[in-house]
Nucleic acid binder design. Structure first.
Length: 581
RNA sequence: GGGCCGGUAGCUCAGUUAGGGAGAGCGUCCGGCUUUUAACCGGACGGUCGGGGGUUCGAAUCCCUCCCGGCCCGCCA
């Protein structure tokens, strides 16, 4: 039996094992101890993580979890929690495992301060003035699930926020099971975990005290919800394990420089009527939900992760899940901040990017600090297109191809942006370069957009209908991008005559060009004629082109004008050149 | 102050598993597309791989050290 015990000994029998959550960083990890050093090289990080998970020999279904505490705005930063886990889940499914992807909403957490911004049900960011702010202000200190939805739609603020996250996940094609912490407490799922903690107060204090100075001989890691005022309290005066209750006093709650006043009520709460502090709640989730893998942001890496590992083993008697720290990304070079207004929501992002491009962004290596720059989102799309080309063997880049061959199927598989007939050959897909799509966005007519794309060779007679449809969908997004960023592609064919005036030579040249167009010539000829006409009238070619751009776009610059005009309705072009309409 | 993670071309990034040619795309510049005008094509320019030291025949890659940035080491999550 001693052999058995030593072989299957728990983690404490292996104090040398590596608990670093940076499993994608250490190049030499596991080299000597035989735990995981001999794994094959993987071009896709999710395979590395999957190896780590499989090495634990977990029972199916494998459970992958993410989670957040509700805040003001659900934004792309939260997508890390969803997408990172998703790719690992998909890799494991690809390897034949059954996988559940959970997402916990830490919704028994108290609202500690008013958010400055909120996201409505459509993901639009609004200020406090646009909602029932009082519904929030009156409820500081209460669990999110006990606070009314400031938009008056859901049963609580927590439900509103959870619905946003779930909707975002759906928009990206990620099926997640939402889990409410409040429900886990209320339905008794957490009851044994709470009992375990309160049964071994000395042990918990000893372990947690190694990480938190505030833990003293009086510290009770359970926060009952006050029966009188509904706020989360911090003062437990007695524990009754037999009855399964605690005695508490509703004292003031310090939040930074502010104080949320307690009502002074003294009462009794069951183990279902409160919450564990985060440091214990996290490992308790691992326990009751059988979590095998959890990605988390770098803010957890050196704080709650080490203590969570310790508490999982010493208090709950479980092994913590496989961890994975992901780097945060910046937005336009600045940290994401809803209060500072530097955020973008998933619905907003999907107005300028295909879902698979967003998914691609999160398929890139998690340890790299990246910048998501909306001003130059075309760079990201270009990278995606190249990544896709690599998958189809169209790029001479060994490294990229190796990554694409593995990761691409997970990036596009299940993406809501991909909607093709069953017999479609994916290699037939068409991607207009993003900036070209922005150029096409200058015209509103779908037929004209398609014609211009044909002229440019992006579409031909062999291009299947579904590929054209997909390709043209990008035009709308690029158009939105041009408008949102108000960049150099933000101009549009003017349906009404712009307010412009030209001197005599230019006006005469425009009239001549109108005659030429009226006589019936194709775009190429019109382009050539523009040079001729300018020369004939002794005006600079550049000035003539600018006149044309002002007439048609109300801008000093534009696309290759002659060929562009060749695609437009002849009568319209002639009338416009004559400044008649 | 201590710990962790990052730092490769103007920009966005591969490459570090397993030491051997410093790369891609975009931008810029030049040229081509019958004659400067943003879509297409070709070419060029562009980097002390954050700095320094070490190991090695050979280092972006391994070791040490320093610099810069982010995060954590109070509370909360």
């Amino acid at each position: 039996m001693t052999d058995e015990a030593s072989r299957d000994g728990d983690a404490r029998a292996r104090p040398d094992c590596d608990d670093s959550p940076h499993i994608l960083s250490e190049q030499a990890r596991g080299a000597e101890d035989g735990t995981s050093g001999d794994d094959a090289f993987h071009a896709f990080w999710a395979d590395v993580v999957a190896d780590e998970i499989e090495a634990r020999d977990p029972d199916d279904p494998i459970v992958i979890k993410g989670g957040v505490s509700p805040s003001g705005v659900a934004h792309v930063g939260n997508v890390n929690e969803v997408m990172r886990g998703y790719f690992v889940a998909e890799v494991l499914r690809d390897r034949g495992h059954e996988v559940r992807q959970l997402f916990t909403s830490d919704d028994r957490d108290p609202l500690r301060k008013l958010p400055r911004k909120l996201a409505n049900a459509d993901g639009e960011i609004v200020g406090l003035g646009d909602v029932d702010a009082g519904a929030l202000g009156r409820n500081l200190g209460k669990p999110y699930t006990a606070i009314p939805d400031p938009f008056g739609e859901r049963e609580s603020y927590a439900a509103h926020f959870a619905a946003l996250l779930e909707a975002d996940a759906e928009r990206l094609g990620v099926p997640v099971e939402m889990v409410s912490n409040t429900e886990l407490y209320a339905d008794g799922t957490f009851e044994d975990a709470v009992r375990t903690v309160l049964s071994d107060l000395e042990g918990v204090r000893e372990t947690l005290g190694k990480y938190q100075d505030k833990v003293d001989d009086e510290y009770v890691p359970f926060n009952p919800v006050c029966a009188e005022c509904g706020k989360v309290t911090e003062t437990v005066t007695a524990v009754d394990l037999e009855a399964g209750t605690v005695e508490y006093a509703c004292t003031d709650l310090e939040v930074g420089d502010d104080v949320i006043e307690g009502c002074g009520h003294e009462g009794t709460a069951t183990f279902r009527e409160g919450k564990l502090p985060w440091r214990l709640e996290w490992p308790a989730q691992w326990d009751v939900l059988d979590v095998d893998f959890e990605p988390f942001g770098k803010d957890h890496a050196e704080g709650s992760w080490p203590s969570g590992v310790d508490l999982a083993r010493t208090v709950f008697g479980i092994e913590p899940p496989v961890p994975m720290v992901y780097e945060w990304f910046t937005l336009g070079g600045e940290a994401l901040s809803s209060s500072a207004g530097n955020v973008v929501t998933v619905p907003e992002l999907l107005e300028i990017l295909e879902p698979e491009v967003v998914r691609y962004f999160f398929a890139l290596h998690p340890k790299k600090a990246r910048d998501l720059d909306l001003e130059r989102i075309d760079q990201l799309v270009d990278r995606f297109d190249r990544f896709e080309e690599a998958y189809f063997g169209e790029v001479d880049d060994e490294e990229l191809t190796r990554f694409a061959e593995r990761a691409y199927p997970f990036v596009v598989g299940g993406s809501p942006g991909i909607d093709r007939p069953a017999d479609a050959d994916p290699a037939d897909r068409v991607r207009f370069p993003y900036t070209f799509a922005a150029v096409l966005g200058m015209v509103e007519d779908r037929e004209l957009r398609e014609q211009l794309a044909r002229d440019e060779g992006h579409v031909d007679d062999d291009t299947p209908e579904w590929a054209v449809r997909e390709a043209l969908a990008r035009v709308e997004r690029a158009r939105t991008w041009a408008e949102r960023t108000d960049n150099e592609y933000n101009y549009r064919l003017q349906t009404a005559l712009p307010d412009v005036a030209f001197d005599g030579d230019v006006a005469a040249a425009l009239d001549d060009l109108a005659e030429f167009v009226a006589a019936g010539h194709d775009g190429e000829a019109i382009q050539a004629e523009m040079y001729e006409t300018a020369r004939d009238h002794g005006i600079e070619v550049a000035d003539f082109f600018e006149a044309g751009y002002r007439l048609f776009f109300d801008q000093p610059q534009g696309p290759r004008l002659g060929e562009f005009l060749g695609e437009l309705e002849r009568e319209f072009v002639v009338a416009r050149l004559r400044r008649e309409a």
